[in-house]
Lab assay of single mutants.
Amino acid sequence: MTEYKLVVVGAGGVGKSALTIQLIQNHFVDEYDPTIEDSYRKQVVIDGETCLLDILDTAGQEEYSAMRDQYMRTGEGFLCVFAINNTKSFEDIHHYREQIKRVKDSEDVPMVLVGNKCDLPSRTVDTKQAQDLARSYGIPFIETSAKTRQGVDDAFYTLVREIRKHKEKMSKDGKKKKKKSKTKCVIM
């Protein structure tokens, strides 16, 4: 069974824990209790493949930012979460993405942009803004509501699919490099 290491990042209060708990335990946590770091595991079937999701729910508070490099190193894919009623959390996505790329030393890291709290009427981040940002990053965008469960499975499952595509691409690139290195030079 394939294991996928997913990391949920975003500013404090955007609903990272609520999304994760909704996926794992099928219930909505409405009281806000700032996370330092929590880890969850769940076995699911995605596109006919049974897999184990190892999900790291991270601290959004700035005082825990020193811990970010460590979990970013171990993560295979990242859910970059903002709240649709919090423009600052949307603007912060850029910083999370840049930090992930720096730590992973790669421009090509599996990510999904997630606009959470889409059940709320007080939207300050337009869907088109988020779609445009995701398009500019070359990553999928999904709106979710941890409260109603809308888009929750889709967000995590899409990230797994992005990781699969990335692994497939990397193995193809690896095979191309191996083929090239088999060419021999004969000096007579």
Rank of each mutant, 00 (worst) to 15 (best):
I36T: 00
D105W: 01
V45A: 10
I93G: 02
A18D: 03
G13D: 07
D69N: 11
M188A: 05
F28T: 01
L23W: 06
G60I: 15
K104Y: 08
V9F: 13
L19M: 06
K117Y: 13
D108Y: 05
P121D: 14
S39M: 02
T144S: 11
E168W: 03
F82D: 09
D38F: 00
F28V: 02
K176Y: 13
E49N: 09
T124N: 11
H166Y: 08
S39L: 01
D108S: 07
R73Q: 12
Y4S: 10
R149G: 12
K178G: 07
H27G: 10
Y64G: 09
Y40E: 00
S65G: 05
I24V: 06
L52N: 03
H27A: 12
T20A: 02
K42R: 09
V8L: 02
K175V: 05
K178F: 11
I21M: 15
R41Y: 00
H166V: 09
T35I: 15
R149A: 10
K182R: 05
T58V: 11
G15F: 04
V152T: 07
Y157K: 13
S136K: 06
T127C: 08
L159Y: 01
G174Y: 03
G13V: 02
F28I: 02
Y157F: 09
K128E: 07
I93Q: 01
G60M: 15
P140L: 02
K175G: 13
K178A: 05
T50H: 09
K180R: 09
D69K: 04
L52S: 02
E63D: 05
P34V: 14
A59I: 11
R164E: 11
V186P: 12
K179S: 07
D33Y: 08
E62L: 06
K167F: 08
A130I: 13
G48M: 04
D38C: 00
Y157E: 13
K104T: 15
M67Y: 08
A155C: 11
F90C: 11
D119P: 10
P34Y: 14
K16H: 15
K177V: 06
K5V: 03
V114C: 04
R68V: 02
Q61C: 03
L56T: 09
L56C: 07
R102G: 07
E49I: 04
T35G: 14
D33E: 03
S65N: 09
D119K: 05
T183Q: 11
S122Q: 09
K169R: 05
R73D: 11
I100M: 05
C185R: 10
L120I: 07
F78V: 12
S65W: 02
D33K: 00
T148R: 09
G115H: 04
R97V: 15
R102C: 13
M170L: 06
L133N: 11
Q61V: 06
L23H: 09
H95A: 15
L56Q: 15
Y137T: 06
G48H: 06
L79F: 08
R73I: 07
T74N: 10
D57N: 00
T20Y: 00
T20N: 05
F28A: 02
G151F: 11
I187L: 10
M170K: 11
G75I: 05
E63M: 01
T74K: 11
K117D: 14
G15A: 01
R41S: 00
A11I: 05
D154N: 07
K117G: 11
E31I: 03
Y96E: 13
E31R: 06
V7A: 05
D132A: 05
H166C: 07
K117E: 13
T74V: 08
A134L: 05
K176E: 13
V44G: 07
G48C: 03
E3H: 05
F90P: 02
Y40V: 04
Q25M: 15
T35K: 15
I24C: 05
Q43C: 05
C51H: 11
V103W: 15
T127E: 06
E63V: 01
I46V: 10
K172N: 08
K180W: 11
L19T: 14
D57Q: 00
S89G: 11
Q99R: 05
E168H: 02
R135G: 08
Y96A: 11
Y71G: 15
N86R: 06
L23S: 13
R102Q: 12
R68A: 05
L52M: 04
V103I: 14
A146I: 10
V29H: 07
Y4T: 14
K165F: 09
D69P: 01
R123G: 13
D54P: 00
T87V: 09
R97G: 04
D92N: 11
I21H: 14
I84D: 15
R164S: 07
K117R: 14
V81F: 04
G138D: 09
G151P: 14
S89E: 14
Q70W: 14
D38G: 00
Q61R: 00
R123Y: 10
L23D: 02
K104E: 02
E143K: 03
V8G: 01
R123H: 11
R68Y: 04
E49A: 08
V109K: 05
I36R: 00
L19W: 15
D154H: 08
H94L: 14
T74L: 09
M67F: 06
C80S: 02
K88H: 07
G13N: 06
K117Q: 13
C80F: 15
T158R: 05
K147E: 06
R164H: 09
T158L: 06
V44Y: 08
E98K: 02
K128M: 07
C118Y: 07
K184Q: 12
K172I: 10
R97Q: 08
T58I: 03
D54S: 03
K172L: 08
S145D: 12
L19K: 11
E107C: 12
A59C: 14
E91F: 14
Q43I: 06
D119E: 10
D154A: 08
S17Q: 01
K182H: 14
Q131S: 10
Y137E: 04
T87C: 02
D30W: 03
R41H: 00
Q22N: 09
T50N: 07
K175E: 15
D57L: 00
K101N: 08
V186C: 07
H94M: 14
D108T: 05
S39Q: 05
N116W: 00
G13M: 02
V186I: 15
S122N: 13
V8E: 02
T158C: 09
L19A: 10
K182I: 15
E37S: 03
R73H: 13
H27Q: 13
E49R: 07
V186T: 13
I139M: 06
D132H: 06
L120A: 11
D153H: 08
Q70G: 08
V186F: 14
E63F: 01
T158A: 08
A66R: 09
P110T: 04
D173Y: 10
Q129T: 11
G12D: 10
T124A: 11
A18F: 00
L113C: 07
T87Q: 05
Q43R: 12
